[in-house]
């Protein structure tokens, strides 16, 4: 089926999710880990989209997830809205803020944009911590209802996996379209993109909005799963971890962030202490940037390509270019 052949990344994601579900379904502790890893993976995927494809070094993905989470939680607790409405808000609020931020700042160099997103992330951290009447301040929001039928850990795992696969599917479709190509051109050479007729501002802003929405959806699941949100739930640390694992896995590859997050969550078990996490992530990032800037997937791809002999270049029979 051409649909499957045209979506190799989605296929891999589905296979991965299937394996995970089959492996952990009988163990509640592992299922819980898997759900949280899935949420982290979704956030890392969003960082991969903004950085790997659009070249926007966004340090605000955790903040976007937090915005989505709080939007969903407030919708459920204060407004009594059903989970689906909360999802809509969790997608819309971060997307709107991401779009506005990008539009205001996108003429800036990637470095300046990175600093701006860091500033935004820190601002969101502070507001969530300080605006007690809205967010419950340090006490946070408790008693977030579950999502109807999906009220078991396994149910949440299926939900997270479905969301992950759908996100990869959309991501893949995007990169195979003229919009995805435009994003890549922008990343390398904005003048070239303009000469191709691309409205750089609009395209980049839309990309960041999408990435923010993806992170927001992860926040939505998080809020309903943990049923409690506090100022330490999704913070700048989440943003940092998402970005680091995305880059280490290979930000330019769709599945890079997925691979990076899963690998790191697995390796974390072997760390001598919880506190050493930053040392591990930071050190790995430095090493990867020195020796394999395309990430682990990039490393795998180049060694794979090197080993295969070049196929003779031939004019394709159909119009496939």
């Amino acid at each position: 089926m051409t649909l499957l052949r045209a979506h190799p990344n989605t296929l891999v994601a589905v296979a991965l999710c299937a394996c995970v579900i089959l492996a952990v379904r009988s163990d509640p502790a592992w299922t819980d880990t898997a759900v949280l890893t899935g949420i982290d993976t979704l956030i890392a995927l969003s960082a991969g989209l903004s950085f790997g494809q659009a070249g926007i070094l966004s340090m605000a993905q955790g903040a976007f997830a937090a915005l989505g989470a709080y939007a969903a939680a407030l919708a459920a607790i204060r407004l009594g809205l059903p989970g689906a409405a909360g999802l809509a808000l969790a997608l819309a609020v971060p997307a709107a803020i991401g779009y506005a931020l990008a539009r205001a700042l996108i003429r800036l160099s990637p470095l300046a944009t990175a600093l701006a997103t860091l500033a935004l992330g820190s601002l969101v951290d502070i507001v969530l911590r300080g605006w007690e009447s809205l967010t419950g301040g340090y006490i946070g929001l408790a008693g977030i209802p579950g999502l109807g039928l999906i009220n078991t850990p396994l149910g949440y795992l299926l939900l997270v996996c479905a969301m992950l696969c759908i996100s990869v599917f959309g991501y893949e479709n995007l990169m195979h379209s003229r919009h995805g190509r435009a994003l890549n051109v922008i990343r390398h050479d904005r003048a070239r993109a303009r000469a191709d007729g691309v409205d750089v501002n609009a395209v980049l802003s839309t990309a960041l909005a999408l990435s923010a929405a993806m992170a927001g959806s992860a926040g939505w699941v998080y809020a309903h799963y943990i049923s409690y949100l506090g100022p330490d739930s999704l913070t700048t640390n989440t943003s940092i971890a998402a970005l680091l694992t995305a880059v280490i896995g290979g930000a330019g590859y769709i599945l890079g962030p997925v691979f990076g997050t899963v690998l790191f969550e697995a390796l974390q078990r072997f760390l001598p202490a919880q506190e050493a996490q930053g040392l591990f992530y930071g050190g790995a990032l430095v090493v990867i940037l020195l020796v394999a800037r395309q990430g682990l997937l990039g490393l795998a791809a180049t060694s794979w390509r090197g080993r295969r002999r070049l196929r003779p270049v031939q004019a394709p029979a159909s119009a496939a270019v």
Binding site: L111, I240, L279, G282, L285, V286
Partner: peptide
Amino acid sequence: AIVPALMSFGLAVAIASLVLL
């Protein structure tokens, strides 16, 4: 210009973690 900045970011995270440890 972004790669050294990203690297310094990793270093910052590592140092903070070291201090914490």
